[in-house]
Write a protein that binds this DNA or RNA. Structure first.
Length: 558
RNA sequence: UGUCUGAUGGUGUAAUGGUAGCACUUGUGAUUUUGGUUCAUACAGUCCAGGUUCGAAUCCUGGUCGGACAACCA
């Protein structure tokens, strides 16, 4: 941890240099989501970066909603974004909306027109597009390009006043039609959209484009470092052109780009995530298989684990694909220290302890968390009839199998040594019950004669256990790179049909009062959390992640 | 076949002209009342070719390969 903090990423180096050279006297960042979708783990990287920078350099961070397109945006998203950022553990210094600046942005647009740096264009979007040229061939000038500032100003004011229909006119910057950077070929600043805005209502019918609005919003908020993803690198000259052309006094914000997060076995684009939701491939944005912040939260991830993840993946400019295993590592790492251990059986097999008295019940001590002495201990009830994991019994065990099989002795965790004496099968030959004898002297899990057993397995008392629904989640995609597909194939062909299995299991009574969001380690199985669907009558658990399983690995390797 | 940008173990990320390090993954071993945790240990890397230099991952030249960009989206 100490080393990681000493190690500076390239953005921190820029920041320190800027501070040292006196370009800025402080650090002020912003996280600028568009309220048209839910935040995902990629946004979380950006959030940790922006807020982390402010934390590290004693600066500030704004939450700014980039709401310049009323067609796709909604307050529903504003609320979820706020909740997610807060949940991740960050508090913004100011909450702003690009729409707060529509007045100022409009005034500056007039300034640009007056300076002869912008004009009202009456070309349709198709015409603009075909006249834009290609990277090698320059654009052909709009016939309206040389129109006088006075005429443009008049038209622009009338655009604002709602005199023209959608799409009939735009305000364009007058830059460089031959620029190899397509963004400099007279980009659009304003378009006409007669749509109610989620905050400004019907006050405006012209809306600024991202390139124009973003940098000026940064300037208004006195942002020093405007951090964004790599695809905006090409936009930087434009970002700077606007600031310079309006002749805004220094200091101006500095845009710095970093490589967005890609995760193996995951799709991250908003469009694709929306499609998964719309087509019911998942159960909503907060489906525990989704890489959304709300999905991860429901899956049982902690804010700490996500911050740790953001910390470990680092920040750089090169394209990257992070192994989703790292995210799994982070949640295990965090939950290993925090989650209380419990016994739960998700694929039950009945066990009868034949030499255990019919109505006897033992109360046994169980440690809540060996990693945390403060967590204390609890009592476990033991009875004649139990459930164990079906995988923990094999009639014909392979070499190296430490668990229960005919004639072998294992430890029931915190309880007794038991030896399998008999197997009961149904007509189909399926094992329905296993009979064991127990050694009363081994109470608690140790034999006074010092004899050892290789295996320790978990169990629940049939009489005391609570039934629960267990949702076993696996990766949503079978392919490491779901978007890479053969001709004629679709990324959705890579969806894992077994990404969710719902089973009926049994858990110890200790969990009767568990609340939505509570997290536990089911010993030897994994980390589980109580799902929001859980009720007093019916417990529902989500499997967040399995434990590392070196036996399973050995088996698959053969 | 334009512009911008990048290239370090399997995956990420450091080293800013001076011993290529860290994490995850993987292998092996120890400990263990979770085949978990923890601990130890091992494998494995500078895209290529030239040049500058006592010395190059780092600087220069030329290649190669990857990514982004031609929405009235952000």
């Amino acid at each position: 941890m100490k080393n990681e903090n000493l190690q500076k990423n390239f953005i921190e180096e820029f920041v320190e240099e800027d501070l040292q050279k006196g370009r800025y006297t402080h650090v002020h960042t912003r996280f600028p989501p568009e309220p048209n979708g839910y935040l995902h783990i990629g946004h979380a990287k950006s959030i940790c970066l922006n807020f982390g920078l402010a934390l590290k350099y004693n600066g500030k961070t704004n939450l700014r909603f980039d709401d310049t397109n009323p067609v796709t945006e909604d307050t529903e998203y504003v609320d979820s974004i706020r909740e997610d950022v807060r949940w991740l553990g960050f508090n913004w210094d100011n909450e702003y909306y690009a729409s707060d600046y529509f007045g100022q942005l409009y005034e500056w647009a007039e300034v640009l027109i007056q300076k002869g740096k912008a004009y009202v264009c009456e070309l349709s979007s198709e015409e603009i597009s075909t006249m834009r040229g290609t990277p090698q061939i320059p654009a052909t000038p709009s016939p309206f390009r040389e129109r006088s500032p006075e005429e443009s100003l008049d038209l622009f004011r009338r655009m604002k006043n709602g005199e023209f229909p959608d799409g009939s006119k735009t305000l364009r910057a007058k830059i460089d039609l031959a620029s190899p950077n397509m963004h400099m070929r007279d980009p659009i600043l304003y378009r006409i959209i007669h749509v109610k805005h989620h905050r400004t209502g019907d006050q405006w019918c012209i809306y600024p484009m991202y390139d124009y609005a973003h940098g000026e919003s940064d300037y208004i908020e006195k942002i020093t470092h405007s951090i964004c993803t790599l695809e905006f690198e090409v936009h930087r000259p434009l970002y700077e052109w606007f600031l310079a052309s309006i002749e805004l006094p220094l200091p101006r914000p500095r845009q710095i780009e970093f490589a967005r997060l890609n995760l193996s076995y995951t799709v991250m684009s908003k469009r694709k995530l929306l499609q998964l939701v719309k087509e019911n491939r998942v159960n909503g944005w907060d489906d525990p298989r989704m890489p959304t912040v709300c999905g991860l939260r429901r899956r049982g991830f902690t804010p700490e684990s996500i911050r740790m993840f953001a910390d470990r993946i680092g920040v750089a400019k090169r394209e990257n694909v992070i192994d989703v295993g790292l995210l799994e590592f982070c949640i295990r790492e965090d939950l290993n220290k925090k989650a209380n251990r419990v016994l739960g059986v998700i694929n039950p097999l009945k066990v009868v302890i034949t030499n255990y008295p019919e109505n006897q019940v033992d109360e046994l001590d169980a440690i809540n968390n060996p990693e945390d002495p403060e967590a204390g201990s609890r009592k476990l009830s033991f009875g004649r009839e139990l459930y164990i994991e079906r995988e923990d019994f094999m009639e014909v065990p392979p070499k190296g199998y430490f668990r229960l099989s005919p004639g072998t002795e294992v430890r029931l965790r915190y309880a007794y040594f038991v030896t399998c004496t008999n197997v009961v099968k149904d007509a189909q030959g399926e094992i329905v019950e296993v009979h064991c004898t127990y050694d009363p002297a081994s109470k608690g899990g140790n034999s006074p004669d010092g004899r050892k057993v290789k295996g320790t397995i978990h169990w629940v008392s049939a009489k005391h256990a609570i039934e629960a629904e267990i949702r076993l989640y696996d990766r949503l995609f079978m392919s490491e790179t779901p978007e890479d597909v053969e001709e004629g194939q679709d990324w959705k062909d890579n969806i894992n049909p077994d990404s969710l299995k719902v089973v009926k299991g049994f858990v110890e009574p200790y969990l009767a009062n568990a609340k939505s969001g509570d997290k536990f380690q089911f010993e030897r199985l994994g980390y589980f959390c109580v799902d929001a669907d859980s009720t007093d009558k019916k417990l529902v658990f989500n499997r967040t992640v399995t434990l590392k399983d070196s036996w399973a690995k050995m088996v698959t390797k053969g």
